[in-house]
Structures are given as structure tokens and as C-alpha cells.
């Protein structure tokens, strides 16, 4: 069998002294659209950052196409959350997309002009070729997202990681984005999307990695996203999203609170 695009085993990591995720294990295959799902603060972004090599594992291993993330850089494209980007910065769309082609080299060939073709191609694919010379600060939210996507795709990566790509997009733009992600998966890429929005997950994704700091479940969506597992991952937040039985949850919640108080008292 082929090497999976992503293979994460017993991954525990975090930021400085702060533990973010614990003992996460999953695989993701090429040609699949994979949702990394969980409530806010559940460690979705942390997982993506580990895959791209921004966060070294404290325990466990991360393999991308069978290699440590640092060696698979050229095969990955990453779309950060839009609010992590400085949109006031004086750069053009072309400059930003060109950054996706960055290669570490110290020779004089670094002065060679950046190739235009892949930049234009990536922008065309996003339907944003006409934006090439615009300043990033002049763009609308949807256009900004397309530019970040173009930057991630400019090297034609085999693994595409997107962090909350639909946040702030209107319904049309979101549908367009999902169509594009589906196309990329059908082309044989592994596309991983971190999102807390679980509406329509069964139709959107092939596989899921459901987390809440720990791994809750993983596998094909229908098998891994059950009422039970979703409830386990999302708890109270799920009620507003899906309208799952209010009563049952309420009872469980008050139970927890009471337990907590008892715990306090015995201490």
C-alpha cells in the first residue's frame, strides 16, 4: 500500500509550557477531503501547525508522505486563519503569492527573477488573476481568502492544509470554496480542513478527525461522526449547532457541576 499522505502517531504538543493536544493518532490518505473537527480551542490549528512543521512534537511522531514535516515542505500548502495575516502590509497580491515559492538558498541565484507562470496560474485557478497587481489591503474578505489559497497552491502541493477557510465568507463564496477543495481532492491531493462548523459535514468531507484536545474519533465521516462522538467532542456547543436533545444534556451538565462542587469541598 502507498504511504499515507499524513501519519500522526501519539502526538502530544503545545505552546511553550502550555499543553494543547495530547496523544493524537490518525492517518489521512491522498485523494481524500479530510475535516479536522472540534470546538474552539480543541487543538485543530495545533494539529495543522504540527503537520506543517511549525510546532515540534513533544511526544509522538508526525510523518508527511513518510518524512518529517521539514523535509516535505515543498509538497505542502498551508492557508492560515485570515486574522493571522497583516492585511495593511504594503505588498501586492503577486508578492504574496510569490512567497509561496520561497526556497532556502544562499547562492547568487536568489537574485533570479521569480517565475511568473505559476503565480498567474494559481491566481487564475482562484479566479483572481485580475487582482495580481492590487494591494492586499484593498481586497474584500473573499478575495483575501483566494489570495491565501493561491499562495498555498502556487507550488501545486500534494497536501493542502486550511485553517478555518470558510470563516467570514458568505454562502456563495463558501460553496465555491468547497467545490474547489473537492476538485483538488479528486485530483489526488490530500486536503485537510480545520473547522468548528459541523453543518453539512457528511456531505462535505470524506473522512474526519474529531478532536477535543484528545482524539475523539477518526475515519470515514459516517462511521466516525456519530451522535455520541460529536457530543463527546462538542458537548454544550453542539446543542446550539444541531439542536440535540436539550434535556439529556442539561441533566449531564448539572451532574458535572455538582460533582465539581463535591470535589471542591473534599479538597
Amino acid at each position: 500500500m502507498d504511504t499515507p499522505a499524513v501519519e500522526v502517531t501519539g502526538l502530544t504538543t503545545g505552546y511553550r509550557n502550555h499543553l494543547a493536544i495530547e496523544d493524537i493518532t490518525f492517518t489521512a490518505a491522498s485523494g481524500r477531503l479530510v475535516g479536522v473537527l472540534g470546538p474552539n480551542g480543541s487543538g485543530k490549528s495545533t494539529i495543522l501547525k504540527s503537520l506543517i512543521g511549525l510546532l515540534p512534537p513533544w511526544y509522538g511522531t508526525v510523518r508527511v508522505f513518510g518524512q518529517p514535516p521539514g523535509r516535505a515542505r515543498n509538497r505542502m500548502g498551508y492557508v492560515p486563519q485570515a486574522e493571522e495575516v497583516d492585511w495593511d502590509f504594503p505588498v501586492s497580491v503577486r508578492d504574496v503569492v510569490a512567497m509561496g515559492l520561497y526556497e532556502r538558498k544562499l547562492g547568487l541565484d536568489r537574485f533570479r527573477r521569480v517565475k511568473e507562470a505559476p503565480i498567474i496560474h494559481a491566481l487564475e485557478r482562484m479566479g483572481a488573476a485580475q487582482l495580481a497587481n492590487r494591494q492586499v489591503g484593498e481586497l474584500s474578505g473573499g478575495q483575501q481568502r483566494r489570495v491565501l489559497l493561491a499562495r498555498a497552491l502556487v507550488r501545486d502541493p500534494d497536501l493542502v492544509l486550511l485553517d478555518e477557510p470558510a470563516a467570514g465568507l458568505d454562502a456563495t463564496a463558501e460553496a465555491e470554496l468547497l467545490r474547489l477543495l473537492r476538485t483538488m481532492a479528486d485530483e489526488g491531493k490530500c486536503v485537510m480542513v480545520a473547522t468548528h462548523d459541523i453543518q453539512g459535514v457528511y456531505d462535505t468531507f470524506d473522512d474526519a478527525v474529531l478532536v477535543n484536545r484528545h482524539l475523539v474519533s477518526t475515519g470515514p465521516v459516517r462511521a466516525s461522526l456519530t451522535d455520541h462522538s460529536l457530543h463527546q467532542a462538542f458537548g454544550r456547543q453542539l446543542i446550539t449547532l444541531q439542536g440535540i436533545d436539550h434535556h439529556e444534556h442539561h441533566v449531564e451538565q448539572s451532574h458535572e457541576v455538582r460533582g465539581g462542587q463535591e470535589h471542591e469541598r473534599t479538597r
Binding site: 512543521g53 515542505r73 498551508y78 492560515p80 495575516v85 504574496v96 512567497m99 520561497y102 532556502r104
Partner: peptide
């Protein structure tokens, strides 16, 4: 001039720059 690309990339988007090996 020599490190312009790195300076620009790091100033604009340090997270992405780090992810790209800068």
C-alpha cells in the same frame, strides 16, 4: 538586498515564513 525576500516574508507573515523554512 541580499535578504530582501526573507525580510519581506518574515515581516509580512512570520508564521507562514517559518512554515516555509525561513
Amino acid at each position: 538586498l541580499f535578504f530582501y525576500r526573507e525580510l519581506l516574508f518574515t515581516s509580512y507573515d512570520p508564521v507562514m515564513a517559518a512554515a516555509s523554512g525561513v
